[in-house]
């Protein structure tokens, strides 16, 4: 990049352009060049620092993080069970997309009732931070919530007294298990088509009621 261009940018920032016109060509050169973009940000940052406007806790550059996140975003999320194309199924199974899946599933099933209370004991915060600010919309009640009528407690294997001493890792594991089964149940509810039932299953009553399925009516012309 030429000094000329830096000068141009500087002048543009300060609204002091006299010699060079603001035209598409010049602006294009500015926007399309990584070096110029970085410099543009630095100039602004310097200016903000000088004017005492910058807050140190503020994320300095969101655009890169956003671009990165968009690139990492899973393509889709929805029930498996052969309802999707194979490529989508692949992304569904991709372990890295786990957290994003949790969030998207919640959105898919928001018409249902998969929404959980959130109790802020700090345990979720760590998860959110470690997932690049992607906040799961679906959260379960963590362990050891005292006095909550909607109790959540580990059964047999985990005696009640030991609840509060569960590590964050164990808590996270329990939460994701509860989430997974609840999300799956929601997805199963969307799908009402009765299927063949094995004869050998022995529930109290074996009677099956197909839900008076009516064939698709002719499509309008």
């Amino acid at each position: 990049m030429t000094d000329n261009q830096y000068e141009y940018m500087s002048a543009l920032m300060d609204s002091e352009l006299e010699q060079q016109p603001v035209n598409a060509e010049n602006l294009n050169a500015l926007v399309r060049n990584d070096d110029m973009r970085t410099r543009w940000q630095h100039y602004h940052l310097i200016g903000a620092m000088l004017r005492n406007e910058a807050k140190t806790a503020m994320p300095m550059d969101i655009s890169a993080a956003v671009a990165e996140q968009v690139a990492a975003e899973p393509v889709i999320i929805a029930p498996k069970h052969g309802l999707l194309r194979k490529a989508q199924l692949k992304s569904w199974l991709k372990p890295a997309a786990n957290i994003a899946i949790a969030a998207s599933v919640a959105l898919v099933t928001v018409l249902g009732v998969t929404q959980y209370q959130r109790v802020d004991d700090g345990s979720m915060v760590a998860t959110e931070q470690s997932s690049r600010g992607f906040q799961p919309a679906l959260q379960t009640v963590p362990l050891g919530v005292v006095g909550n009528p909607l109790s959540y407690n580990a059964s047999q294997a985990q005696p009640t007294a030991a609840q509060e001493s569960l590590s964050a890792q164990q808590q996270a594991r329990l939460q994701s298990q509860v989430q997974a089964f609840m999300v799956d149940h929601q997805l199963q509810l969307q799908w009402h088509t009765p299927m063949t039932i094995s004869e050998q299953v022995k529930p109290a009553e074996k009677e099956i009621h197909p839900e008076n399925e009516e064939p698709l009516k002719p499509r309008p012309q």
Binding site: V105, F181, T193, P194, M195, A204
Partner: peptide
Amino acid sequence: WLPPGFRLERQQRVRVAMNG
């Protein structure tokens, strides 16, 4: 044991959501 009145609607093999 099943709660009285509940009937089996369907049975299938699944992979539980979220890498379950």
